[in-house]
Design a binder for these strands. Structure first.
Lengths: 117, 117
DNA sequence: GACATTATGTAGATGGTCGATATATAGTAG
DNA sequence: CTACTATATATCGACCATCTACATAATGTC
């Protein structure tokens, strides 16, 4: 087994939360970091925002782990953009994250005394 | 334009997540810290567990903030238990947390590409 | 007596996020 | 033409919550 199953605890909550947002946004298509942050902020109605100091380290880590793949677009002088796209491993990992989050939210809602419809 | 809503970062959610578990568990009735951790672990099917190094500092902080109230039960020699119970402020705060959590799950599920029924 | 369980507590290490700072280009306001 | 804003990526130190480990103390048990 090569896949690392993300099991969400209180600790990894924030970490996997940001990972999930990024990977999920990349599923719509390859895009560069700056665009990614803008998209997520827009889709969340301004509630989830990425600071640069948070976003880029995560992207580098995800790339190192082989979940995303980055490529510099060399469009003349203007090109200083790195396009990221999901790898196959990244998609599998994202599926695991989605499942973990559904489970997590269900359990948490249960403990909080609210039924999940 | 909408009013300046405190847009909660991932960190504050992780923080409020533990608070919410504790406060919600105390709503079932006053109990001491050790019991609290056991209850939450049981109710979550073993998924959420509190380490003592995490639990007690949070309890102390919640008490200092007036959200819970602790009292040492002086049951002879055996009594080395501190019973905590929700204050009125704590219940109000918990209601706010529940609302914030519902909102959070809705927005997050939306960004993750899953509809909330 | 040694050990496990219940019960609370603190200190140092770890690790992720935030704010600030840096670079570089392009467009616009003055 | 200078200043400022926006786009775009990147790093570093500060902050802070959690984790691991250690410490205390009483009770029950082998």
């Amino acid at each position: 087994m090569t896949s690392k199953e993300p099991h969400l605890g209180p600790q990894s909550f924030a970490k996997h939360f940001n990972e999930a947002l990024i990977l999920s946004s990349l599923q719509d298509g390859p895009k560069h970091g700056y665009q990614l942050a803008l998209d997520i902020e827009e889709q969340s109605g301004g509630r989830f925002g990425f600071k640069h100091g948070t976003l880029y380290p995560i992207l580098h880590k995800l790339e190192k782990e082989g979940l995303i793949e980055g490529a510099w677009s060399d469009e003349g002088q203007r090109g200083k953009r790195k396009r990221y796209q999901l790898t196959l491993a990244g998609e599998l990992y994202l599926n695991g994250l989605r499942k973990a989050w559904r489970d997590f939210m269900g359990v948490f809602s249960g403990v909080m005394g609210e039924e999940v419809s």
